[in-house]
């Protein structure tokens, strides 16, 4: 079973919830798919056993064979190629690796090349397998890394995915194929605004979902009204509490050292797995 934790708005507490949920697992996998700024390993502190490169395809042009006909430039839907005189210019950051250019080249002057855009690290904390992706600086697309991470999923296990913020391609890629989405929000107008968008995306994918309200100060009406309207069950409410914030700042998952929360995360996980949470 795959459980994804997403929020739309950044900074609502996705990673906190995801790692506490992962620690409540007897055995399973944890994937930090927020590859533009992964931070779950700061809390889980796994021993890294494995690192792998993530590469994407790019055109590799043989300038001797190239006749400068420009067929590749016309074939590129992403404007990653240009022709200046007889010279073909390649813009690797814009290339989507679609292979059109080397397929259309009448001179067979283009072959498929590769370039690295980031890496994936694997580690272990007891019986929890931890996987984290990291996109290199200045790279525009996180999607290939998330795709590669998801090939490492062992469907027989319970998998917790810490998703990226937002609702663009990386977030969609992260939640794709999930059996359940846990939506984390804060009871503020900003939290609600982005929650609305993420609910739309999750529902469009047909994934059952439930809500966690984080940093509650007692009055959660703004989130509760929306939850009621959308038929979203509120599965957990976490108060704005100094002890939780202090533990976070030290890189300690609060569910690990506060027994009452450890218990609540176990119950939450059980109800999701039993299908009672949506």
């Amino acid at each position: 079973m795959i459980i994804s934790v997403v929020s739309g708005k950044g900074g609502t507490g996705k990673t906190s919830i995801a790692i506490n949920l992962a620690l409540a697992l007897e055995e399973g996998q944890f994937l930090d798919c927020d590859v533009e700024e992964p931070n779950a390993f700061l809390f889980l502190k796994p021993e890294i056993t494995n690192q792998m490169d993530v590469q994407v395809s790019i055109p590799d042009i043989d300038t001797v064979l190239c006749s400068g006909c420009g067929a590749c430039v016309k074939a590129c839907s992403f404007h990653a190629l240009a022709q200046a005189g007889n010279k073909i210019l390649t813009f690797e950051n814009i290339c989507h690796g679609c292979s059109a250019c080397w397929l259309v080249c009448p001179q067979k002057a283009i072959k498929e090349g590769k370039r690295s855009i980031g890496f994936i690290e694997k580690g272990q904390v007891k019986s929890l397998e931890c996987i984290q992706g990291e996109l290199n600086l200045k790279e525009p697309s996180a999607v290939p890394i998330i795709k590669k991470m998801k090939t490492l999923i062992d469907q027989k296990k319970t998998i917790i995915i810490d998703g990226p913020p937002g609702t663009s391609c990386p977030a969609v890629e992260a939640i794709k194929g999930s059996d359940f989405c846990l939506l984390v929000t804060e009871p503020t107008p900003f939290g609600l605004h982005d929650l609305k968008v993420v609910v739309e995306v999750v529902k469009q994918q047909g994934i059952p979902c439930g809500l966690v309200i984080n940093r509650s100060q007692g009055d959660d009406q703004i989130a509760e009204e929306f939850a009621q309207k959308e038929n979203l069950p509120i599965l957990l409410t976490i108060p704005l509490e100094k002890e939780i914030a202090q533990l976070y700042s030290k890189g300690i998952p609060f569910g690990k050292v506060m027994p009452q929360w450890q218990h609540k995360f176990k119950l939450l996980l059980e109800s999701i797995k039993a299908g009672d949470a949506s």
Binding site: V73, F78, A80, A82, I94
Partner: peptide, 11 residues
Amino acid sequence: ASGGAGIAAAQ
């Protein structure tokens, strides 16, 4: 264009 507008315009 979703990307590469400058390149396409230059071309």
